[in-house]
Write a protein that binds this DNA or RNA. Structure first.
Lengths: 212, 212
DNA sequence: CCATGAAATGAGAGTAACTCTCAAAAGATG
DNA sequence: CATCTTTTGAGAGTTACTCTCATTTCATGG
């Protein structure tokens, strides 16, 4: 659920019994991300260079690239996909899986919006304005799609590699991405959850013809 | 329908009463594309530099960038989107528009496969292997989606900007993109048109649950 | 057929995202 | 504290892409 989940790494205040090394890694990771968001807010995406990001995050440019393969990824990457899938697997097994999906997505959206609304908004905005970001976003959505596909497959008694499952999940993802775009285009004025419900309805039931 | 349409420019043997200038432009355009396809076939995508492309096409690197904004676009761009939309608009107005879509897509696929099967295959392959290409492909599909959306909107008595139309077309596009990927992954052994039909069915009717 | 204007091209310099390599720094471990 | 491993920084190199300007190439009217 890349577009509406927050950017932060994990639990961040409580870092359990991880070694100092691991904790530092998490810290630089979020430092880089925070620096990036700040700079983008100030100057926009294109004007922000990786060198500037490195400077503000107080690391070397090399390190930035070690943590994020591309500049777009700094903005886009999150760690919520596995959580999302786990959540889906925990739904009661006899629930129709479209309904499960609905629940899980709804929850993901709620959490994302609550936990880091700014990041969520910045992401959607960039998705709208910067083609490279949008492209990469779709790409990463397709990864999410594959994970969902696995879960869906299990439930629906098909293989995750089957054409049917893949087409279905990707069409789902494609549709939902469009919701984010629509939301951003209208300056975040609509209620995201409601847009999402409408979208799900369309995807499930198709587009009723108004003039037959 | 970017992924399954050929790369060639227009009519190419018969260049009507276009000025010499226009004809030359078309020629360099296809020269660049042909050079690119050839080099990719020989060395792969990453290993092929724009400089090499320019050299083989006998133009300067500057010119390559004048014709195609990015390297990925050389592979991906086609001029069939408007044709596709026109075709859609020419379907009988009383035909259910899902049926119209079906017809039009089917035709696009047939034409694309017939006219330039190699380009079609190379594209799908690159989409599979090169993330940058796949990303850009999805991006360009979303443009196609918007055009389709306009047409669909007119038919279904909604605005092309409505959330419903946008979600619907993007989910359609997303699903169909997945068909190309699936096809490429399985080494083009399946019958594309048949895969496409199966995908449309899933999109229209949803995924029937096998174990309720 | 040539002169003038407009458009396309090439050459070259510049930027910024990435990649690779290697030596120095910092955390883990006994 | 000594050693081993992982992480970092520095720097050089590649390549996609941008901009500018002089030169060439086509279009056009006389």
């Amino acid at each position: 659920m890349t577009p509406m989940t927050p950017a932060r790494s994990f639990p961040l205040s409580d870092s359990p019994q991880l070694g100092l090394r691991e904790r530092k890694k998490i810290k630089t990771r979020t430092a880089i991300r925070d620096a990036t968001y700040a700079l983008i807010r100030e100057q926009g995406y294109e004007a922000t260079t990786v060198e500037q990001i490195a400077e503000r995050a107080e690391v070397s440019p090399s390190t930035v690239f070690r943590y994020f393969p591309t500049k777009e990824d700094i903005v886009l990457t999150d760690e919520y996909d596995p959580i999302l899938v786990r959540e889906l697997n925990e739904r009661p097994a006899d629930e129709p899986w479209t309904e499960s999906l609905r629940h899980v997505m709804r929850k993901a959206i709620a959490v994302g919006l609550a936990e880091d609304p700014e990041a969520t908004r910045i992401r959607s905005q960039l998705m709208l304005q910067v083609p490279a970001v949008r492209a990469r976003m779709l790409e990463s959505m397709s990864v999410t799609g594959r994970m969902l596909g696995e879960a869906v497959a299990e439930r629906s008694g098909r293989s995750g590699d089957s054409l049917e499952v893949r087409v279905y999940t990707m069409s789902l993802i494609g549709g939902l991405t469009e919701v984010s775009l629509y939301w951003a285009e209208n300056d975040f004025q609509d209620d995201f959850a409601e847009l999402f419900e409408r979208a799900l309805t369309v995807i499930e039931r198709g587009l009723p013809t108004k003039n037959p």
